[in-house]
């Protein structure tokens, strides 16, 4: 069932002497929502960043929708890599909106510059996205005038404006005040209901439990355990996972 959207095979990544990813393999099917959890420093961000080549890997292969981005640590050429990575959108912990552009321009920018779309073609799509996240009245506002939760929703909409097949989220609620995480999680939940393929690095165990179909627990650059959320949270087998769950659930 389902086409394979993301495949990582024996991926290795070092920062100097530090082995951050050691032999990571996993697959992601269309429409699947996977939560990646694990202690800080375990390589979760690096894993996402390797997928859209914000980091380059030192070993293994990555294929997106059946096309190799990198095969045995050998990358396809730049334009091809950019095309393949264009199937993925990314949301960062720090939002990283473009501060010199209004909310609307943040959404229009990449489609117009990268895809060379005409403004008239992307405008209705951008307006619809703003409506979906409930921020249509903020379209002409500059990002720093928004709350963190609003900024993160704009960041999600900005990524969606490129019409990606896969969305990568790197702790999207970790820099938000607790009362603002709900609105962002709701936007993500809606996206999951629309059948978006998603990888979500998160500390929100509630979200992982309810929305994710599969949870991956990483520690020391290795996938220690993975499975459906009920299994992972109710009957963890791995010792590191048990300790981790104890520490965060207190």
């Amino acid at each position: 069932m389902g086409t394979t959207m993301v495949r990582m095979e024996n991926v290795r990544k070092n920062f100097g002497d530090l082995e951050v990813l050691k032999d990571i393999s996993f697959e992601l099917k269309q429409g699947e929502v996977v939560a990646v959890i694990g202690p800080s420093g375990s390589g979760k961000s690096t894993l996402l960043r390797c997928l859209n080549r914000l980091e380059t890997i030192d070993g293994g292969s990555i294929a997106i929708e059946g096309e190799y981005l990198v095969r045995d640590a050998k990358y396809v050429e730049e334009a091809e890599a950019r095309r393949i990575c264009g199937k993925m959108g990314m949301v960062f912990q720090q939002f990283n909106l473009f501060p010199h552009m209004t909310v609307l321009d943040n959404l229009l920018e990449a489609p117009m510059i990268v895809k060379k779309m005409a403004r008239a073609d992307i405008l209705p799509i951008a307006e619809e996205l703003l409506r979906k996240i409930g921020l249509e009245e903020k379209r002409d506002v500059y990002p720093t005038k928004l709350s963190g939760g609003q900024q993160q929703r704009v960041a999600i909409a900005r990524a969606l404006a490129m019409n990606p097949d896969i969305m990568l989220f790197d702790e999207p609620t970790s820099s938000l005040d607790p009362e603002l995480t709900g609105e962002v999680l709701k936007t993500m939940r809606n996206l999951a209901e629309e059948n978006m393929t998603m990888i979500v690095v998160t500390h929100e165990m509630g979200f992982a439990r309810e929305v994710a179909k599969r949870v991956i627990f990483m520690a020391d650059g290795v996938v220690q355990e993975e499975g459906p959320p009920e299994e992972l949270f109710e009957t963890p087998k791995n010792e590191r996972l048990k300790m981790f769950l104890n520490s965060i659930l207190r």
């Binding site: 914000l54 959108g89 990314m90 960062f92 990268v114 895809k115 900005r158 490129m162």
Partner: peptide, 22 residues
Amino acid sequence: QKGQYEAARALGFTYVQTMRRI
């Protein structure tokens, strides 16, 4: 900030586009 380059790259910008627009 580095995040501006990363956001642009994640959206598919080339280096020249990133410099010129962002």
